[in-house]
């Protein structure tokens, strides 16, 4: 079984702050981490490897510093790591990113592609599904469980109501939830070996697409403005019984023309 896992390096948004004047992220001193859902995706692949045997390749598109999460992937148990990097890819939105990664994936053999559901920096949840569309693959998103039976993948998909159990034949693409796959720690031996291994660096030559489809040029989204919500005045507190509370809330909502 050949599995490719798409991973992304993101700023740890649990410690990040936003500059209220410029509306941009303050990245100084913020650690860069492997995106949690992607780490869940890697864990899903490694669990299949542990159970059934598999070759796991991780690929990331990003600046040279993204090498760090590839080393982490090696230390967790990945077999091969690819860094897709180049100035041409800079400024990409989800469309340009998915075009680029999909084109790069055409260089690889795979039975399964796994991506994280969404990245904690952009929160779009678009790149995985878009890659599946570009490659013409069946896709299942929001995956919280994964087994292999009779050569097919038995997938537990999370929905708002509960779970769906689905079956899909490879090659397919799954987007995975971190909550479904508690990721393992890097092993000490894996860490010692991680920097002794090679990370393949792929540039624009591995992406068979016109340059207009890459990076900022290939992006359909243009950011007009980003801002943080200002702090509003303190709310009003009423201590009343339930019936009075209902009347009060209704009158307040009417007052503000909400209902």
């Amino acid at each position: 079984m050949k599995i490719v896992v798409c991973i992304k390096q993101v700023p740890d948004t649990t410690v990040i702050k936003i500059n209220p004047v410029t509306g941009t992220l303050i990245r100084d001193g913020v650690p860069s981490i492997m995106n949690p859902d992607d780490k869940g995706g890697l864990e899903a692949a490694l669990q299949l490897k542990d159970k059934y045997g598999a070759h796991v390749t991780v690929i990331t598109m990003g600046p040279p510093q993204a090498d760090l999460i590839l080393r982490e992937a090696y230390a967790m148990g990945a077999d091969k790591a690819i860094l897709l990097t180049g100035r041409e890819f800079g400024g990409a939105d989800t469309l340009a990113t998915s075009h680029t990664i999909a084109a790069a994936l055409k260089n690889l053999e795979y039975d399964l592609i796994i991506a994280g559901r969404q990245a904690i920096d952009g929160d779009t949840a678009q790149v995985g599904p878009q890659i599946a569309e570009h490659l013409g693959l069946p896709q299942i998103s929001y995956v919280a469980g994964l087994e292999v039976k009779d050569g097919k993948y038995i997938v537990k998909k999370e929905t708002e109501e509960g779970y769906q159990m689905l079956e899909v034949a490879g090659p397919a693409l799954l987007t995975v939830l971190a909550s479904g796959f508690k990721s393992r720690y890097m092993s000490v031996g894996g860490i010692v070996e991680a920097y002794k291994k090679d990370v393949e660096v792929w540039g624009v030559e591995k992406v068979d697409l016109p340059v207009e489809m890459l990076g900022l040029k290939g992006s359909g989204t243009k950011v007009y403005k980003s801002f943080t919500k200002g702090v509003k005045a303190a709310g009003e507190v009423y201590e009343v019984d339930a019936e009075q509370a209902v009347d009060l809330i209704v009158s307040k909502l009417k007052e503000k023309f909400i209902i």
């Binding site: 720690y185 000490v188 031996g189 010692v192």
Partner: peptide
């Protein structure tokens, strides 16, 4: 399970092959 009991032990003896600083 993670290999924390064999950090500075060479791999030929089943360790992680790390160093004393680790």
């Amino acid at each position: 399970k993670l290999g924390i009991f064999g950090i500075p032990v060479p791999t030929q003896y089943g360790g992680a092959g790390g160093d004393n600083l680790m």
